[in-house]
Amino acid sequence: MNAQTATQTATPNPQLKSGSNLEKVLAAGHFAVTGEIGPPKSWRAEVIRKKAGLLKGCVDAANITDNQTAIVRMSSIATGIIVMQEGLEPIIQVTCRDRNRLAMQSDILGAAAHGLKNVLCLSGDHQSFGNHPGAKNVHDIDSMQLIRMFRDMRDSGLFQCGEAITDGGPPLFIGGAANPFADPVDLRPLRLKKKAVAGVDFVQTQLIYDMDRFREFMKKVVELGITEAVSVLAGVGPLKSAGMARHMRDNVPGMRVPDAIVKRMEGAVNGIDKDDKAARNAAWRAEGIKICIEQIQEVREIPGVAGVHVMAIEWEEAVRSIVEGAKLLPRPVLA
């Protein structure tokens, strides 16, 4: 049996590469919504089930981060299996920081055996940001090569070394990340083009606060023909406070937060007593959600944007209000 027929027997629709819910939603032309779940720093499943419950029905699939910010957490594949048991489709994040090509390939075969279909290929935050700064990093292959490796596994049924995978390639829907705002800005659409050539099926962008810059980016992305083959999901996320807005503007590499957004967050607590922390937090969060909803409405109007990726890590409760506020509920249920 060759790889092609293996993929076809694994998915009912021969047009689909993996048959994942996310892929189906995008293929049917719906404006997709993805979310994000950070696995716990523990071995207990309850917290994952709770978070999955908050996102279920609000998003088409949820990213499961892979030792995000280089802090050790439950593995993304293990967490993804629990999330799937809860009726929410996971997107397994894979970073190049922690695993070499042997581990990545064996992990993805295991993930596919468990029925996980979506993967997101990332370089990974540097270990110096995390809780094991003395760790040795791997970076055997980079995110571009990871995309290509998974694509070749799926489409050609081959391991990276060129040997055939017994029983053909695993059904995968392959994702990547794009940052429209990092320097050198001219290179960013081209880098996305390169990911398309490498074989990516969908990308999620860095959090967008600077709409003008994002519009320019998307214009080039469409011109380059990338959106014909790749679904671009715009990254959005609710700000929790004015302080968070300032921190992201000033300290987070590769992030652009315009002053107007910071001012809006600062203005949200006007007239509220400085000592009334609860009221201030509530006002900030309400404004954060409001801005996020407006941003989703804005990105929906931008040509080439196929969906949104809502990042509300450790604030999963906000996702329903945001998706509902953006009039994206109920989510499509596809056979």
Binding site: D125, D142, M144, Q145, A198
Partner: peptide, 18 residues
């Protein structure tokens, strides 16, 4: 990160490493 195919998403303004 020993990347071989272009910059990661962390390059800061002015071309500094994340």
């Amino acid at each position: 990160k020993q990347l071989m195919n272009g910059p990661c998403g962390g390059t800061d303004t002015g071309g500094r490493c994340e």
